[in-house]
Amino acid sequence: MMRAAGWLALGVLVAAPLLIVLAMGFGTATSGVPPVIPPWGAGGWQGSLEAWGLVLSDSFYRDALWQSLRLAFITGALCLVLGFGMALGIAAAPPARQFIWLALVLLPFWTGFLLRVSAWVGLLRDSGWVNTMLMQAGLIETPLRMLHTEGAMILGMVHAYLPFAVLPLYASLARRDLTLEEAAADLGAGRWRVLFTITLPLAAPALAAAFLLVFIPAAGEVVIPELLGGPEALLVGRAIWQEFFQTLDWPAAAALATALLALLLLPVAAFQRLAAR
């Protein structure tokens, strides 16, 4: 009975929506309400490959996908480097302190995602905090353009997703066997050699998990490109959003979402192989 209930919940809330997105990529956009003709109707198959043709051939969508993956990769890499250092620091603290450090990593979550992004708008824009400070200090004459740049988006995403990276890394590092590192050090390995030959390889599954936890939401990000990226930053999340809300081309939005999912499934599948090993 439990299993039947589970299948029902998964079928309605997870499988059905995903199958519908998959199918809707073969629908046809119209000007009706809803603005789409589904690929199946009373007369059987009536779908088209129009949306997929558009998504695969138009360089606009290819660029959106590529830019999203590139920025998500940079964000993931930065979060790994910084998050690993932070997790090492927390794991090395006395147990009673570790709770406090973890709380400090997690608390920013509860200021609200949008409000944290808005803090970066306030920091980076032309009349913002950083420019005001620099101008008052006499270091610059005219404001630096920092908002609506790629750097602003990366800063915002690293800030938003860094805690996702710290948690799995901390969980893995806190449980590690320190005698291995001590043995390596006793045998003459330097600090960096211990890090690269012992600590990092042993933390590989956690590193992969941390990377994916950052990479996946970053790849589909809508809010950060919208608020920090400026109008030309058309990442795939935003492209899906615009096709859906503004252009009302639902099949194109669905095809684009399917393409994004397919690209994201690759690293997830790779991770599962790594974890299964």
């Binding site: 690993f84 090492l88 927390i90 920013p108 200021t111 409000l115 803090a119 970066w120 860094l162």
Partner: peptide, 17 residues
């Protein structure tokens, strides 16, 4: 230092807010 740097990065915008 990495922990302090990371926490500073996380908290500076929030502290300003």
């Amino acid at each position: 230092w990495a922990l302090y740097a990371g926490l500073f990065f996380l908290w500076a915008p929030i502290a300003l807010m």
